[in-house]
Design a protein around this nucleic acid. Structure first.
Length: 194
DNA sequence: CATATGATGGACT
DNA sequence: GTCCATCATATGG
């Protein structure tokens, strides 16, 4: 049995921006029926609550945003434009917040990713929030999964990258952004979204 | 290389 | 009907 070492819940029970930043370099692992597909997180975005015009939580609790009030470490999956987007809930239970995973560096199960994405281009497998969910096989079946649970289908584990450079920018694809930079990425990575 | 546009499906007013 | 936290094409330089 493979040793699984998920990040603890306390990791997510912090300021959303810090969690987004610290998630860079960690691994997102999907344990499929028989196979394991994983990747290193290279790009994230932080989303806050009512004060964040781009957040789903800005209009209060809706069907999509309600999980942002649930316990930290829970997954939040929803569909936009026919693609699944994968988020992880942050902050103390009762405080809305979530981190969107925007891009991965492919790890294990690359052959399976290529098959699902119907491309041989490594740089096109997970370089976007809609792409990585398709490559990993994440759907709404993975809604509200506890990624701190070693036995869960989707977990986040410590990465083995050292000395990475972190860059920031405004968020992408958002009509109304906050005056702060809430997108974080690993500087120089060839696997970022466009 | 760059920017533009249509497809897409679910949630919301 | 309108609005998107997107993507893959098509077209122009």
């Amino acid at each position: 049995m493979t040793k699984v070492d998920p990040l603890p819940r306390t990791f997510y029970r912090r300021d959303t921006k810090k969690v987004a930043k610290d998630l860079l370099g960690t691994k997102l692992v999907h344990k499929d029926t028989n196979k394991v597909v994983s990747g290193t997180i290279v790009e994230t975005e932080a989303y806050y609550g009512p004060k964040d015009p781009a957040s789903r939580a800005s209009n209060g609790k809706t069907k999509i945003s309600t999980p942002m009030w649930s316990k930290p470490g829970a997954s939040l999956v929803y569909m936009v434009h026919a693609y699944w987007l994968f988020n992880i809930v942050t902050e103390e239970q009762g405080t809305p917040g979530a981190v969107l995973i925007r891009a991965l560096k492919p790890g294990k199960g690359i052959e399976l990713m290529k098959k699902r994405r119907e491309t041989d281009d490594l740089h096109n497998l997970c370089s976007g929030p809609g792409k990585l969910t398709e490559a990993l096989g994440i759907t709404n079946e993975h809604q509200n999964v506890d990624v701190t649970e070693a036995s869960a289908a989707v977990v986040v584990t410590q990465g083995d990258l050292g000395g990475i450079q972190i860059g920031t920018s405004h968020r992408i694809g958002v009509s109304e952004d906050l005056p702060q930079e809430l997108r974080f990425y690993i500087e120089g990575s060839p696997f970022l979204s466009q």
